[in-house]
Write a protein that binds this DNA or RNA. Structure first.
Lengths: 165, 165
DNA sequence: TATTGTTATACTCTATAACTATA
DNA sequence: TATAGTTATAGAGTATAACAATA
C-alpha cells in the first residue's frame, strides 16, 4: 500500500510546504521596496484595498484584508497623518468612518506597486511562457475561491487520536 | 500613463498578495488532518524533514526547515516522548544528537501526508489538466530557487524616502 | 440595546541571551 | 576556547476584553 491514490502521478511535496515558504520569500523581496516608500506590509495592503472608490467602515476593511479590526487602527492613523488617506465620519452614520485614498496616497501606492511588479516580472520572466501564463491563471483561480472551498468539509469530525496540539 | 510597463500584459494582483493568503488557507486546511494525528504544524514539518536517513544535529535540522534551533526543542521532546522519533547522542561527538524516525513515526508521517495529499488532490482536480501540471512545475521550480535569487539585489540601497516602518 | 471605533490587556509565536556539557 | 543543546527571558505580532460615542 504505497502508491495508493491511483491516478495521481508522482510523490510531489505538499502544496502548502511549497507555497508557504515561497510566500514568505516573496514578502521578504517586497520589503525593501515598501520601506523605500515608508510603507509597512499592512499599510501597503490597506492602500491596495482602498481601490478607486471610498470604503465605508474600518471593520469591513479589516475583514476584507484578513486583519483584525484593532490591528489596522495604528496603520490608518499613520497613513492619515502622512496624508495618504482621508478618514472622516460618514455623515449618514457618524459611528462609521469613510476611508478614501488621497491623490498622494494613490501616487505612493502606484509607485510601490510598480516596483514590486517589476521585481516579480523579473522572476516570472525566467519561466517558460506557457507555464507562466498557466501559473498565473491557476493562482488567480485559487485566490478567488472562497476559503471554505479549500478548507472543505470536516471529513470525520474528530474520530482519530486527538492527542496533542 | 496608465499602461506603462509595455510588454507585461494585464494588471494582475501582486504575486505575494495571492500566494500568502493562499498559503494560509492551505495550512488551515491541513490543520484538522494534523490534529487528527496529534501533530502540530512544526511536528509535521520535522517528520517530513527526517526523511529516510538519520539527521545529525538539531541546529542543522532547524535551519533546514526554516526554524530557530530553540524553536524545535519542545517539538522534538514531544515527538520523542511519543516514540515517533529517536534522539541519541552521536557517539563520535556526544554534543550533537542523532535524530531518526521510528517505524511508528514513519507510519504517522505517511498517514498524515496521505490525508493532506488527498485534500490537495481534490482541490487540484478542479483545474484543467495542463494548467495543473504547469502550476506544479512552476511551484517546484520556484521553491527550489535559493532565496537570494528571489529577493535579489538591493537595487538602490536606501535612496528613497525611508520614513516610517 | 446594538454597533463603530478605540484603548488596554493578555496571549502566542519567535528570537536573543545566559547556562551546561562535551570537545 | 569553541560548539551543540538547553533554559530563561524578552520582543514582535496578534487577538480578546473593556470602554466611549453614536444610533
Amino acid at each position: 500500500m504505497a502508491e495508493s491514490t491511483a491516478a495521481t502521478d508522482d510523490p510531489r511535496p505538499d502544496l502548502a510546504a511549497m507555497i508557504v515558504p515561497l510566500g514568505r520569500t516573496l514578502m521578504a523581496a517586497e520589503l525593501p521596496v515598501l520601506r523605500a516608500h515608508g510603507l509597512s506590509m499592512w499599510a501597503y495592503v490597506v492602500l491596495l484595498a482602498l481601490g478607486e472608490e471610498p470604503v465605508r467602515g474600518q471593520s469591513g476593511l479589516a475583514q476584507a484584508i484578513g486583519a483584525d479590526k484593532t490591528r489596522i487602527i495604528g496603520v490608518l492613523d499613520d497613513l492619515q497623518e502622512r496624508g495618504l488617506i482621508e478618514r472622516r465620519p460618514d455623515p449618514r452614520d457618524r459611528r462609521a468612518h469613510l476611508l478614501t485614498l488621497t491623490p498622494e496616497g494613490r501616487r505612493v501606492r502606484e509607485s510601490a506597486q510598480a516596483g514590486i511588479r517589476h521585481r516579480e516580472d523579473r522572476l516570472l520572466s525566467q519561466l517558460p511562457l506557457e507555464d507562466r501564463a498557466a501559473f498565473l491563471r491557476v493562482l488567480r483561480a485559487l485566490s478567488a475561491l472562497p476559503e471554505e472551498e479549500i478548507i472543505g468539509p470536516e471529513r470525520h469530525g474528530s474520530s482519530e487520536a486527538p492527542d496533542r496540539t
